Computed example of a mutant assay.
Amino acid sequence: MAACALDAAPIERIGEVIALLIRNRPMGDPAVVHDTFVLERDYPVSPERVFAAFANPEAKRAWFAEGHNHDLERFEMDFQVGGVEISRYRVRPSGRFAGVVLSSDGTYLDIQPGRRIVIASILAMAGVRLSASLVTLSFAPTTEGTRLTCTHQGAFFENADGPERRKTGWRRLLHQLAEALDR
Rank of each mutant, 00 (worst) to 15 (best):
A2D: 02
S103I: 15
A65K: 04
L177H: 07
L123D: 09
P113F: 10
E40R: 15
S46E: 10
P57M: 00
H152P: 03
M1P: 03
Y108L: 04
T142D: 10
A126P: 01
L134C: 08
H68M: 05
F156P: 00
V128F: 13
V38G: 06
E164G: 13
E73A: 04
R23D: 13
A65L: 04
A126V: 07
E73P: 00
A132H: 12
A160S: 11
F54A: 06
T136P: 00
L181I: 01
R172E: 12
R165V: 11
F54Q: 04
M77P: 10
R183L: 00
L130P: 02
V50C: 06
G99F: 02
G162T: 02
G15R: 00
T149I: 14
T143M: 13
F51C: 12
T146I: 02
A55F: 14
R147E: 09
Y108K: 08
M1A: 05
E144M: 09
G83D: 05
L6H: 11
R74F: 01
V91C: 11
R25K: 08
E76W: 13
R13L: 03
R171I: 11
P10W: 05
R13W: 07
A98Y: 02
L148V: 03
C4S: 09
V100D: 00
F54Y: 15
H175T: 15
G114R: 11
A2L: 04
H70K: 12
R90E: 02
A140H: 15
E158A: 10
A31M: 11
G154R: 06
P26N: 10
M125A: 14
A124P: 04
A52L: 09
D35S: 15
L174R: 03
D78R: 09
G83V: 07
E66Y: 08
T168M: 09
S46F: 04
R74S: 00
R183T: 07
Q112L: 10
A8P: 15
F156V: 00
E58Q: 14
N56M: 10
F97G: 00
R13A: 07
Q112T: 14
W170E: 04
V91K: 14
A53Q: 06
F54R: 08
R49Y: 02
A19M: 05
G127W: 01
P141R: 15
